[in-house]
């Protein structure tokens, strides 16, 4: 890679790549922890609201916001993946090859994360929050 970019753009680029790799997984982790703990703790304590917000609403937020996060990561990872197509030679620039590998990993991770969040959202649609 002969092209040079400013150090700030390079820093942002590096961070964006990591967001593309881990953004979806982080969103899903937030979704999973928030939705589960809200549901289990509120229901065990016999509440059907969370500080005034109905439980269903709180859980919906815990699905929708992470879903948005995972989608954003997915978009960045697709962009990165398309722009980092490795050169045909196996011994092409290894930094590009490495970054492309990370983009592929991120792309798939984001897809899975989004799938899990959506699956969880479906469960929230089907099951009343405190039914046992």
């Amino acid at each position: 890679m002969s092209e040079r970019v400013s150090s700030r753009a390079a820093l942002v680029g590096g961070l964006l790549l990591w967001f593309a790799v881990l953004g979806g997984a982080l969103s899903w982790a937030v979704h999973s922890l928030a939705a589960w703990s809200i549901d289990e703790l509120a229901c065990e304590a016999g509440h059907d609201d969370l500080a005034g917000v109905p439980l269903v609403g709180a859980i919906a937020l815990a699905v929708l916001l992470p879903a948005a996060g995972a989608t954003a990561a997915l978009v960045v990872s697709v962009l990165a993946w398309r722009r980092l197509r490795p050169e045909p030679r196996e011994d092409g620039d290894r930094a590009t090859g490495r970054a492309h590998l990370l983009a592929v990993v991120g792309l798939w991770l984001n897809l899975l994360a989004l799938a899990m969040i959506v699956f969880g959202g479906v469960a929230a649609l089907v099951l009343p929050p405190c039914q046992r």
Partner: peptide
Amino acid sequence: AYGVGLRDLAALR
């Protein structure tokens, strides 16, 4: 499978 599982779970209780 997940869909069917959810339906059965809802029905169990």
